[in-house]
C-alpha cells in the first residue's frame, strides 16, 4: 500500500463527514475516492480489468445507498432535476449534453488505438523443482539435498567465509551484469532484459538452497513446462561453472542479502 495516498483518501473521507456535504457530492466523492484508492493506492497496481469489476460493484452499492430511503432519493435527485429543468443552467446543460458524448467518443478512440503489445505468457514465479537433477554427471537430490558447505557455517566458520568469498567472486564475475551490485535486479544490462532478472532480496528466504542451485545450474532452458516464460535469458550455468562454484554462489547470495535459506523440514513433503 502506498501510505500517503491511502492516508490522503482517508482524510478526505473524514472531511466529507465533518463538512456534512450534500449527498450528491458525497456519493461522487466516495466513488472517486475509492477509485483513487484502487488505482493508485497499491504498490503493485491492480489491473484495470479488476478495477472495472470493483468499481462496478462500488457503483451499484453507492446507488443502492443513495436510493435506500426517500429522503436520500430526494436529496440526490433534486439537484439533478433542477440542473436539467431550470433556465439558468440551460447553457451548462447544453455544454454537458455535448461534452459527455464527446468524452465517450474520445474514450472509444483511445481504446481503439491502444499500443500493440506482444502476447504475454503467464509466468510462474517459483516453479516447482524436479526431485533430482544431474549436474556434471552427478545426481543431486533437490528434495533431500543440502548445500554441501552450509554445515561449515557452524563447524568451521573460517572455511565457511572462504566459500562465501569464493561465491562473491563467482557472482561478480558472472552474475552482476544482470542481477546487479545490490542484487536487486539492477545490473548494467537490465534495461535490455525481459523478463527482468530475479531480485534476490525478495523471495529467497522462502526457498531452499537446492532450489537456487537448480535454477542456477539449469537456467531458463531447464525450466519445467509450466515454468515459463521462455524468454528468460538466464543461462544454464552448469556449462560454465563448477558445481562447487555454484554452491558457493548460493552461499554468497544468502550471506549478502542477510537471508536464511528455508530448511528441509519447512517444506511440505508428501
Amino acid at each position: 500500500m502506498k501510505i500517503p495516498i491511502v492516508l490522503a483518501v482517508a482524510v478526505a473521507f473524514g472531511l466529507l463527514r465533518f463538512l456534512r456535504v450534500k449527498l450528491l457530492i458525497w456519493a461522487a466523492a466516495w466513488w472517486i475516492g475509492i477509485y483513487i484508492l484502487l488505482r493508485f493506492g497499491f504498490t503493485a497496481p491492480i489491473p484495470s480489468s479488476v478495477i472495472t469489476i470493483y468499481m462496478g460493484i462500488v457503483s451499484i452499492a453507492i446507488l443502492a445507498y443513495v436510493s435506500s430511503s426517500q429522503e436520500r432519493r430526494d436529496e440526490i435527485s433534486g439537484p439533478l432535476i433542477r440542473f436539467m429543468t431550470e433556465k439558468r443552467y440551460t447553457l451548462l446543460l447544453a455544454v454537458a449534453v455535448v461534452a459527455i458524448p464527446a468524452l465517450a467518443a474520445a474514450n472509444v478512440y483511445v481504446r481503439m488505438n491502444v499500443s500493440i503489445e506482444p502476447p504475454l505468457f503467464s509466468r510462474t514465479v517459483h516453479p516447482a523443482s524436479p526431485a533430482d537433477i544431474t549436474v556434471h554427471d552427478k545426481r543431486i537430490d533437490l528434495d533431500a539435498g543440502e548445500n554441501p558447505f552450509r554445515h561449515l557455517e557452524t563447524s568451521n566458520p573460517q572455511e565457511f567465509r572462504k566459500h562465501v568469498e569464493n561465491g562473491r567472486r563467482v557472482y561478480y564475475q558472472n552474475c552482476v551484469f544482470c542481477h546487479g551490485d545490490t542484487m536487486s535486479a539492477n545490473g548494467m544490462f537490465v534495461h535490455g532484459l525481459d523478463p527482468i532478472p530475479t531480485n534476490f532480496h525478495d523471495t529467497i528466504a522462502q526457498l531452499r538452497e537446492t532450489f537456487l542451485f537448480w535454477r542456477i545450474s539449469k537456467g531458463g532452458p531447464g525450466l519445467p513446462d509450466e515454468g515459463g516464460p521462455w524468454d528468460t535469458a538466464m543461462p544454464a550455468w552448469e556449462k560454465f561453472l563448477q558445481e562447487d562454484e555454484m554452491w558457493d554462489a548460493v552461499l554468497f547470495l544468502y550471506d549478502f542479502t542477510g537471508q536464511r535459506p528455508r530448511g528441509r523440514e519447512e517444506v511440505a513433503t508428501k
Binding site: 497496481p45 489491473p47 484495470s48 480489468s49 479488476v50 503489445e117 504475454l120
Partner: peptide, 8 residues
C-alpha cells in the same frame, strides 16, 4: 487475472 503486459 486478465492484465496487459505493462500491468503485469
Amino acid at each position: 487475472i486478465i492484465a496487459t503486459v505493462s500491468e503485469i
